[in-house]
Amino acid sequence: MCDKMKKVNSWLSAVFGDQPVPQFEVNTRTVDVLFQLAQTSETRCSHTELLIKDLNQKTSEYQADCAHYQDVLLQAVGLSCATLSSASTDYLSTLVDSAITLAVRDISIGNFFPAVNNLSDELLEAEKSNRRLERELKALRKNLGATLVLCGNLQEDINKTTKAQAVEGAKVEERLLNMDFVTTKAKELSHRREKAEAQLLSRNMDKSLTHQAIVQLSQEVTALKQEIAPLKKKLEPYMDLCPNPSLAQVKILEAKRELALLDSKPEMDMEFQ
């Protein structure tokens, strides 16, 4: 713990330099995290230093090669950068730019052609990839158009469904209100009926005077009238006959009494009820 804390303090001092180190809570977790950060930072710094040293070494090598080539040109051919014309300088710059673009160290013709061929192959592959991507893009655009149309149709269906649900919801709410009203009214009528039946029972009302009893009695009267109708038809032929006036008169009187008895029977039954 002490060794880690010392290393963390040293690293924080190096990072912030002349600025004061911010205060932080010292515990096992924070010390471990800062220790890991310090190790990672030192590792990256060492890698960076190695990379800088390598670049400096390569720069020194390139500068030495450049001085060597300049000496060779000056001693062998008598050429120097100061004696070259502007066109030669432009050609030389173009040659250097081409070598950098083609990533070749030797600027001989034998090295330029393979590099150009490689770039040509890469260009062909890029064009093929571009054509393939264009075909895929067209297909995606076509699918996107169909998808947008489908989304529009789905949104329209959703809107219609939402409106229909709103209308149905209003109808259902109205039906519920009506059902509540009918239920309340039915309970009220049932209570009133029970109350009325209780009042009738308390007053010793005759059941024969109820609506149901009267309807039943009316049905019985109708049935009796239907039974009397055939008897009336049987008496009709005898109404005009008089072979024996006295006997016929007696028969007629008996038939009239029987008919009157039958006619008065329903009324008597109603009175008894």
Rank of each mutant, 00 (worst) to 15 (best):
G78A: 03
D121L: 15
E127Y: 03
A87P: 08
L137M: 14
L144D: 05
P114V: 01
N130F: 05
S93I: 08
I100N: 15
D97I: 06
I107T: 12
L73R: 04
R141C: 08
N117V: 05
E136R: 09
L123K: 02
E136P: 07
N117I: 05
S129E: 12
A146T: 08
Q75R: 10
C81V: 01
A82K: 07
N118P: 01
N118I: 04
F112Y: 05
T94C: 15
G78M: 02
L123P: 03
D106F: 03
D106G: 14
G78F: 03
A87K: 05
E125Q: 12
S85Y: 06
R132S: 15
L119T: 06
T101Y: 04
S129L: 10
V96E: 06
D97V: 15
E125W: 00
E125L: 06
G110H: 08
E127W: 00
G145H: 09
A76Y: 01
A126M: 07
A139T: 15
F112I: 11
L73P: 03
I107Y: 02
I109V: 13
S93N: 13
L137R: 09
A82V: 01
N117H: 06
V77G: 00
L73E: 02
V116Y: 01
V104F: 00
E127T: 10
G78H: 04
L137H: 07
V77A: 05
S85V: 02
V96C: 03
R105H: 12
L92N: 04
T83P: 07
K138E: 14
S98N: 08
L84S: 11
V104G: 02
L133Y: 08
A76N: 03
S129I: 03
G145A: 15
S85W: 02
F113M: 09
D97A: 09
S86I: 10
N130Y: 04
F113C: 08
S86V: 12
L144T: 14
T101D: 10
L124I: 14
L140F: 07
K142D: 14
S80F: 12
D106M: 06
T83C: 13
K138Y: 01
S98M: 14
L95Y: 06
L140S: 13
S108C: 14
V77F: 01
V116M: 15
I100E: 14
G78C: 02
A87F: 08
S129A: 15
G110R: 07
A115M: 01
A115L: 02
L137W: 06
L84Q: 07
L140K: 05
P114K: 06
S120A: 05
N118F: 12
L92T: 15
Y91T: 03
D106S: 15
R135S: 12
F113I: 10
A139M: 11
N117P: 04
I100H: 11
P114R: 04
L84Y: 00
A76L: 07
I100L: 09
A103M: 03
L124M: 07
D106E: 04
A139G: 14
A87E: 13
S98T: 15
I109S: 11
A115S: 06
L119K: 13
I109Y: 01
